[in-house]
Design a protein around this nucleic acid. Structure first.
Lengths: 253, 253
DNA sequence: CGGGGTGTTGAAGCCTGTCAACAATTGTGG
DNA sequence: CCACAATTGTTGACAGGCTTCAACACCCCG
């Protein structure tokens, strides 16, 4: 069940068998979280570091007016910052979009593990750097692209991240399929648009034959075209070891 | 010259005299960077960790079409991630907006220092968490607020962050003054608007008597009103020790 | 079969972008 | 110290992206 976590970490750092075993141990106690349930809640004091082992979740903030902005999608292997416990109070919430299997690693155990294992320490530090890079890319996306390109960019990113986890299927016609269990409303809250307008942009992307979206899945008929539309460059994801399934995806760039 | 860095870190963690001395040593070699010059450049391999000791800088990304999105303002005490060296290549640039005094801490020395001094380690880890929180707040700002509130929110944040550094002057009429050496074009690239529209929003804020902006300075006549407009809540900055100058600012919330 | 969540569509209007010209300010060199 | 150039700020008219509101279609689930 921690395959994705290992795949993600290994896109940056080669891990020994012992390191993997440590991860296994850290994530031994898991909890099933239903869709629409909290994984973390604004105002909470942090207790353990949540790790998504399967499913999809979203990090978001609510505004006074009731609107919501999603600031991250958490897919398998994604987790909160290792030092989260330093904060007295969480400033955002995390909610399951699809049923999730979550491990909550006690902060102390994670600290001990990374202090004892330099590879793990590097791997987790790398995760923090990439999470920040993704956040910067999202600021750019929302700030400087219009809806059409914006949605395309988000899809390119998720496609790439899922590829690293080897969670993308490719059929013999060249189309690529991945889970994307997100409603149009949630998509809208992610890219900073209205559900209505998001719907219209999706229709455009569909009518142009670039994607299909619905039924909790995304099909990309033409990855190159989508990346063209988005102006997508995968460099910010900092995949450093090309011996992963992401290889063939990187080469598209 | 490292007062700001110390003030910033101490808003989270009390530092011993020895810790402060370590910081002093780490930042001993400084470099003056003129306005509009690079501090870090996309595509570079990271060498040292830049720390802003004085001045203003901006982290940004350029898009294919030539547009720019600023993803962070770096004010005194701000710095890049301590583990930056783990990345092979930087995915964004940092440029001085005003003349800056910069220390480039060699990654190894910073690593040694934080391994030897748990307080420093905690302080730097806290910085990373706050940087991420700010980034999330920017995604929300650009994604879910309109220009008027968006600019107000940015000003509230910078006001707060400058307060922590004790860099805000308060006159006897209640107005608060802070350096804000940013052109309207740079402001526009920060909040995801056009320079023209940014100008119009600024005029509105001025005409309403909330702020004055220009001449490299921002004057806030009515902090409460500005926060009201912005829907600003300072919780995401995670100021944990109220014995700082930020105290009176927090109390406004 | 019914109901709630989700997706789709149309019309109207606002926020924001674009283009283009001009004013004000800053900086520089003579 | 002034004159000129370059940058920055300001304004108007117009267009376009996006929002809002509201109604309706669809689909999954009990």
């Amino acid at each position: 069940m921690i395959d994705s976590l290992i795949r993600k970490l290994e896109s940056a750092v080669a891990l020994s068998h012992a390191s993997r075993q440590t991860l296994q141990d850290l994530c031994s106690k898991t909890r099933q979280v239903e869709a629409r349930r909290y994984i973390l809640r604004e105002g909470d004091a942090p207790h353990g570091v949540p790790v998504v082992l399967s499913g999809w979740a979203a990090r978001y903030k609510l505004l006074a007016g009731g609107s919501r902005q999603i600031t991250a999608f958490l897919i398998p292997g994604d987790h909160c910052d290792r030092d989260m416990a330093l904060l007295h109070e969480i400033d955002h919430s995390i909610m399951a979009l699809a049923p999730c299997q979550i491990a909550y690693i006690p902060s102390e155990r994670l600290k001990e593990a990374t202090e004892a294992d330099p590879d793990l320490a590097r791997a987790f530090a790398w995760c923090t750097l990439v999470d920040e890079a993704i956040l910067r890319a999202w600021v750019v996306n929302v700030g400087r692209r219009e809806g059409y390109e914006r949605l395309a960019h988000l899809m390119c990113e998720m496609h790439m991240r899922m590829s690293i986890l080897d969670l993308v299927e490719k059929d013999r016609f060249g189309a690529e399929h991945l889970d994307f269990p997100v409603t149009q409303e949630e998509l809208a809250d992610t890219v900073g648009l209205t559900p209505v307008h998001t719907n219209r942009v999706l229709q455009r992307l569909r009518s142009e034959g670039v994607i299909r979206f619905g039924n909790r899945r995304l099909t990309i008929f033409d990855v190159k075209a989508l990346r063209q539309i988005a102006g997508f460059s995968p460099n910010y994801l900092h995949v450093q070891r090309t011996a992963t399934p992401a290889e063939r995806v990187l080469e598209l760039a």
